[in-house]
Computed example of a mutant assay.
Amino acid sequence: MLHIYATLQTLGFRIKNRLQRDETGATAVEYGIMVGLIAVVMIAGLVVLGPKLSELFNDVSGKIPVVTP
């Protein structure tokens, strides 16, 4: 009788452990997705704004007077 009780108790603990979700890997995946999306947004921003920023800096540098000693 004790053997049956021990077997059922062990089975119960195994079922309980399987039903509990292990979410430690999920946070790593979520951080990876966020980093990937941030990288995509940064690259898209540089592609869209890159030529305009280059033009702006060239315009500003052309208006700065050169002082020779």
Rank of each mutant, 00 (worst) to 15 (best):
G45E: 01
M34P: 00
L49R: 01
I43H: 04
Q20P: 01
L19N: 05
V66L: 07
E55A: 15
E23K: 04
Y31F: 06
L8D: 06
A26N: 02
M1R: 14
L19R: 02
A26L: 07
V40L: 15
T10R: 06
V40H: 02
P69Y: 04
A26E: 07
V29P: 01
H3I: 06
T27E: 15
I43F: 09
E30R: 10
E55Y: 11
T68G: 01
A6R: 14
A44P: 02
A44C: 06
T68A: 09
L37A: 11
P51F: 04
Y31D: 12
F13N: 13
E30I: 06
L53K: 08
S54T: 15
Y31L: 13
Q9K: 14
Q20M: 11
I4N: 08
G12T: 11
L46I: 02
A6C: 03
E55T: 12
R18D: 03
L53I: 15
P51C: 10
G32E: 09
E30F: 05
K63S: 15
L19H: 05
V67Y: 01
K52G: 08
V66K: 09
L56R: 03
L2I: 14
Q20V: 12
V66C: 03
Q9A: 15
G36C: 06
V35E: 14
V47Y: 09
Q9E: 13
L49A: 10
A28P: 01
D22P: 00
I38A: 14
L37F: 07
P69C: 02
A39I: 09
K16Y: 11
L11H: 05
L53V: 13
I15D: 00
P65K: 10
Y5F: 14
V35P: 02
R21H: 05
F57V: 13
G36W: 03
G50A: 04
I4D: 12
L2T: 15
E30K: 08
T10Q: 10
K63N: 13
G36I: 00
V60T: 12
E30P: 00
V41C: 06
D59T: 15
G62R: 09
G36S: 08
L49Y: 07
P65W: 03
I33V: 12
K16I: 02
L37M: 13
V41W: 02
V60M: 12
Y31E: 13
L49C: 07
T7R: 13
F57T: 07
K16P: 00
T24R: 14
D59C: 04
S54R: 13
R21S: 09
R18H: 08
A26Q: 09
V60A: 11
T7Y: 11
M34R: 14
K16C: 09
L49Q: 05
G25C: 00
E23F: 03
F57K: 06
R18G: 02
T10N: 07
V48L: 12
R18C: 01
E30S: 08
T68F: 07
N17F: 00
D22N: 09
G32A: 10
V47R: 10
A26F: 05
L2V: 14
L2W: 14
R14A: 03
V60I: 13
V35A: 13
R18S: 04
I33A: 07
L53D: 08
A44L: 10
V67T: 15
T10V: 04
L2M: 15
G62I: 06
